[in-house]
Nucleic acid binder design. Structure first.
Lengths: 110, 110
DNA sequence: CAGAATCCTCCATGATACTG
DNA sequence: CAGTATCATGGAGGATTCTG
């Protein structure tokens, strides 16, 4: 159980989840463009993990040049909805956290 | 925004959040007992971060031996509620993920 | 008891090169 | 294009020691 949370609450996993949730069916290279800062290695690795966990469906087309498409499974979409609460929490309380940090910094110096 | 998620979706942060949410006001040493596997360093470090972000309130008593108590702020509790969806998701779909993993492993071998 | 400070290790990740 | 393979490294985190 704890390991499920650990895998699912991963930075890259969340970003991929978001990208697929918003864009539907996406090719590998397009994904890397949609997620600034991700390396090719982490994209591959995280996608494999998500596919393994049943969050992502991977479709390979026998073409030249190769084409591989990724999309969320129903399980993947349900995870997206579950995380929705956390996203909206972050947006809603962003300013509050900023303020807390500044207050904390002042307290450290004072 | 992205950094908020990154900090909040941290393994130790989540475990501390859960421990405080369930147990209310807790001393440092009791926390380390409530969270098996956490080192003294990570407990201190994560608590400081959470305090800095306004998720946790820290109270020091001028006693000998020292006593320090931790508890969630309203902001901390609200984060706990936001993550509730993810927890219940994990519980609800645990078996489904397990099955997907086994299926994936078979496919790899086959 | 509740930490701060130090050292050290290992692993996740990035960078690079290669391939079908 | 969509990867795999290999090497290098920075930093997260553990173990230990010390202190008010």
């Amino acid at each position: 159980m704890n390991d499920i949370i650990g895998r699912v609450a991963d930075k890259w996993t969340l970003l991929i989840l978001e990208a697929l949730d918003e864009n539907g069916v996406v090719r590998f290279k397009e994904l890397s463009r949609l997620i600034p800062g991700i390396s090719q290695k982490m994209l591959t690795q995280t996608l494999r993990q998500m596919e393994c966990d049943g969050l992502v469906k991977r479709t390979v087309y026998a073409e030249v040049p190769p084409r591989v498409e990724y999309e969320l499974t129903p399980l993947g979409f349900s995870l997206g909805e579950a995380f929705c609460g956390v996203w909206t929490w972050a947006e809603k309380h962003y300013a509050e956290i900023e303020a807390a940090r500044k207050k904390f910094a002042r307290r450290q110096r004072g």
